[in-house]
Amino acid sequence: MVSVKASRPVAVMMLAMLSGCAGILPVSQPDPEPKTVEREPVQEVAEQSTAPAVEGKYLPQQGYDAQGKKIPYVAAPNPYTQQVTLVPAAAKAAFADARAKRENGDLRMARKGFRAMTKEFPTLSGPWVQLAGLSEQREKPEKAREYYHKALEVNPNNVNAYIEQAMFERRQGEFNNARDAYLAALQVWKDYPEAHLNLAILYDLYMNLPEEAQPHYEAYDFLTGKTDERVANWLIEIRRRTGIETSFIDNPPPVPEVPEVPANTNAAGEAVSADAGSSAPAKSEEQG
């Protein structure tokens, strides 16, 4: 299992799941909890079809100044957490109650609670995401797709919903759909580390497209400050398979060549020593 863990206050997580079209959190709040993904080889490799070329606009790029020194990279902010909204206390309570019922296995009452929320609090996308998950549990994939689409209609910036949708499609074996959902998340937030990581794993282990996976492993490694040793090892391994050693992220400018200083010449065009113009007297042949 690949899990990019980070501690998050319970209150923050509740707001993240409740978020609607106006957003979820004030700017000062931390990002939503990253998602956990599986990185295990599959028995069958999906057909390689319509896989897009690397979308360079989704990849971060290390910049350099005129002297060739690195410019610190500033990641784009998460637009989902940049939005600010006030979630009513009643919505928080209803969401917590429905989620507790789902966790306790009372799927019917959980579904009923989330459905009621979509009517009472129509600007919140979180209940639709929960309904999608419940539909998958009930083995109703088409209904799950409908609810994911509804969640993203309510809040197109809900990057977590794209990740949930992509993981659902991957579990359904719809790898192209999963890819499209990850790319949609990156279109909203190109510096979303976990979207890059999930997409890399999808390309690598499920679609047999290591050349497409490599840039996104590297993007995740870059955006997280090269702190995940496992991903660093995966990058070494995938570079061996692809034979691509050139970075997709960090390409330093070439070191300027120092031009050669041409030798001085005399009036006849003959080369002379560099110290010929010094104040020391010139030597002459000895007279016999």
Rank of each mutant, 00 (worst) to 15 (best):
R39T: 03
E40S: 09
P41T: 08
Q43K: 13
Q43Y: 11
A46M: 08
E47V: 09
E47G: 03
Q48Y: 12
T50F: 06
T50Y: 03
T50D: 03
E55A: 11
Y58K: 12
Y58C: 07
L59R: 09
L59M: 06
P60S: 09
Q61V: 15
Q61M: 07
Q62E: 10
G63C: 12
Y64M: 15
Y64D: 09
D65P: 01
D65Q: 00
D65E: 00
D65W: 00
D65G: 02
Q67N: 15
Q67S: 15
G68S: 06
K69H: 12
K69G: 10
K70H: 00
K70L: 02
I71Q: 05
V74M: 02
V74E: 11
A76L: 10
P77N: 06
P79V: 08
Y80C: 09
T81I: 05
T81P: 00
Q82G: 04
Q82S: 09
Q83G: 04
V84I: 04
V84D: 04
T85H: 08
L86W: 11
V87A: 09
V87F: 14
P88E: 05
A89M: 00
A91I: 05
A91R: 07
A91Q: 01
K92C: 04
K92S: 01
A93V: 02
A94C: 11
A94M: 14
A94T: 12
A94N: 12
A94I: 05
